[in-house]
Structures are given as C-alpha cells and as structure tokens.
Simulated assay, not measured.
Amino acid sequence: MSQPLTPVSDLALAATPNAAYWARCHTVDVLRRWAFPTEGTEVARLLVSELTTNAIEHARPLGPPEAAQPAPDVILLRLWPTPTGVVLQVGDNDPRPPTPQSPSDSALGGRGLLLTATMATRWGYHPRRPHPGKFVWAEVPARPSATFRKPADGQRESNPLLLGQVLTALREL
C-alpha cells in the first residue's frame, strides 16, 4: 500500500499589486483547513505578504521600463506542511538571489527578508527550474512564540510578530 501524499497547495498569481492580498487570503484559508495553529497562521500570513511583495518587485522584466511585457508575469505560491510547521515558497522570474537590505530608519521598505529571517525557523532560495527565476522559501513553526530569540542582557525585548503586523498593516493602507 502506498503512503498518502502530503497535502500541498499551489497558487499562481499575476504579479500585480493585489497579488499579496490574494496570497495572504489563500494562505490563511489553506492553513485553517489544515488545522494549523492560529499563532503560526498569523506569522505565515505576514511572511507570505513579505515574500509575495518582494516577488512582485522582482517579477518585473530586467530591461528598461519601455520594454515591459504586455501581460504581467506570474508569481507562484506553494505551501506544504512539515512535522513542525509549514513551508511557504514564492517564485518569481528574477534569477538574482534575494539580498537582505539595511534600510534607514525612515525607509518605507527593505525589511521583508530581515523580518523573514527573524520570524522563520529557516529560509533560503533555489533556482526555479526549468523556468527562469527563483523560489524564496521560509519555514514557519506551528508555535512561533517558542522559537523567537530572546534579547541579550541589556537589550530591549522586541516582538517580531507585532513588528510584522505593523509593517503589513502599513503596506495594506
């Protein structure tokens, strides 16, 4: 008798500004159906928003704007459970590796990968074969509060989940 297949969810989205909204809705819906814990679902929602927003930025053609393609590129979202959480994977057509930024305090963007690195158990990227581009992935623990790093002595404690919620709410305005 063969083993049952692990549930996997795939969603293709046009690389348009509303893709992040639909990716969040899809992620929450799938994780609820999988009975994923609420706390983990919230973190997954935030990270999918960040990864999708990055993919929208990087799905644009690498050439000059006047050479833009007539139809938007496609972003691919894949979710699958692991024994301790869920993996979120977002693909775009830009082959360049993701690079965490060091934005100024007043910058409106550039913190997505830093937030991902803080809130995910682990994250990375790999080529999107056989198509051009890459997949950026993050593993979200089912119980994220148990995995957040504690501040060193003398440092203020921060809540990455709260920071992520604030950044996502600002982006949704």
Rank of each mutant, 00 (worst) to 15 (best):
L5F: 08
T6S: 11
V8D: 06
V8C: 07
S9A: 14
L11K: 10
A12D: 14
L13S: 05
L13N: 03
A14K: 09
A15L: 04
T16D: 08
P17S: 07
N18L: 13
N18W: 13
W22Q: 13
H26G: 03
H26E: 10
H26K: 11
T27M: 00
V28G: 03
V30M: 09
L31S: 08
W34A: 12
A35V: 11
F36D: 08
P37F: 04
P37D: 05
E39H: 09
E39N: 08
T41E: 08
V43K: 03
R45C: 11
L47M: 05
V48D: 07
T52H: 02
T52V: 10
T53D: 15
E57R: 15
A59C: 15
R60H: 14
L62N: 11
P64K: 15
P64H: 14
P65S: 06
A68R: 10
Q69H: 13
P70C: 03
V74P: 02
L77I: 01
P81I: 02
T82M: 02
G85R: 00
V90W: 01
D92P: 02
N93V: 12
N93I: 13
P95A: 07
Q101A: 15
G109W: 15
L114A: 15
L115E: 06
T116G: 06
A117K: 13
A120H: 00
T121C: 12
R122S: 14
R122W: 05
Y125T: 12
Y125C: 12
R128H: 09
F135A: 09
F135P: 02
P141R: 07
A142L: 02
S145C: 05
A146G: 07
F148R: 03
K150M: 12
K150Y: 11
G154A: 04
Q155G: 01
E157C: 08
P160W: 08
G164T: 05
V166G: 02
T168C: 13
A169H: 11
A169V: 04
E172H: 13
